[in-house]
Write a protein that binds this DNA or RNA. Structure first.
Lengths: 152, 152
DNA sequence: TCCAATCGTAGGTTTGAGCCCACTATAGGA
DNA sequence: TCCTATAGTGGGCTCAAACCTACGATTGGA
């Protein structure tokens, strides 16, 4: 009896964009997670650092809404970043319920390192694409986001 | 004090392909999961049905390797599909350890329905892209897969 | 001054993906 | 015949993502 190639994926599935997107996205996420795990960090930490670097100090509540992360989880992430001094926490004197979170020099260094790691994953994951194609993909994904906000 | 737009995501993150890929992929996966949950099904079930439809009957072990799913999980999925009669199980007489799994007419109907659901998610997720752009995205993703196999 | 709403925080729970082990039945070569 | 490897299966485990709840501190309006 003829045996089909036992590792080929079903063409039916390969024709579905959301399937390809989900699979490659998951792989990318896992690879990033692996690299960050060595530093005891997760995606959340990088997201928080990036938000602080891009937009300046935030109250935790604002980080929560911006990144769509539960407030209680933000608190934990900030805790872990504040320990090693990657972010600073100060009471907001204008509203003493709020805690203003600020990125430190050490936090910026860490962010740069994390970005290098993700760039490496990007390279390995997209090794099949030329630089021009990567830009193309990037543009398409941004379009997807622009249309799908704020659900996405 | 000026307040920045509190929902904009950090541009630093939006510049990373693997981040966009991971986020949109996760969203797509969640939406598909939501729709399938109404039928008591998951991605796995669709994958199995697609594999059977595309390549014909499989021993469970072959489904496992083809879809990169643990054999014990395949057994559970097959169990759930066999209950309502979407797949048939017969001992392989050439090797009585093996169970040959075959898709039934009802299974094909179910698959068609599931594909309709995923197509709907595809449409909503990629509503920002023109049909030509969707094809472009599809081509790029296939390239990514072709290069990243078999890790992906 | 009082009360409802908001912020940060601690301590959970839930859910699902993915994995692992043990066991039975069977196959196939030494 | 015996021994090792493989197929399917049942029962579990682990881990992380994502929530939820309750509480003290604080705010701002009635």
């Amino acid at each position: 009896m003829e045996r089909v190639n036992p590792t080929a994926r079903p063409p039916t599935l390969m024709g579905i964009n959301v399937y390809l997107l989900s699979l490659s996205g998951k792989t990318g996420r896992d690879r990033v997670a692996d690299r960050l795990a060595g530093l005891g960090l997760r995606m959340w930490h990088m997201s928080v650092l990036a938000a602080l670097a891009d937009f300046g100090p935030h109250a935790q509540r604002d980080l929560s809404t911006r990144l769509s992360v539960d407030p209680s989880d933000v608190a934990k992430v900030i805790d872990q970043l504040a320990g090693p001094g990657h972010v600073g926490r100060t009471r907001d004197d204008a509203d003493r319920r709020r805690v203003l979170v600020t990125i430190t020099a050490s936090g910026r260094e860490l962010l740069a390192r994390l970005l290098k790691e993700t760039a490496a994953v990007d390279d390995s994951l997209l090794s099949g694409l030329t630089p021009a194609e990567r830009d193309q993909l990037h543009g398409l994904l941004l379009k997807v986001f622009a249309a799908a906000r704020p659900q996405l």
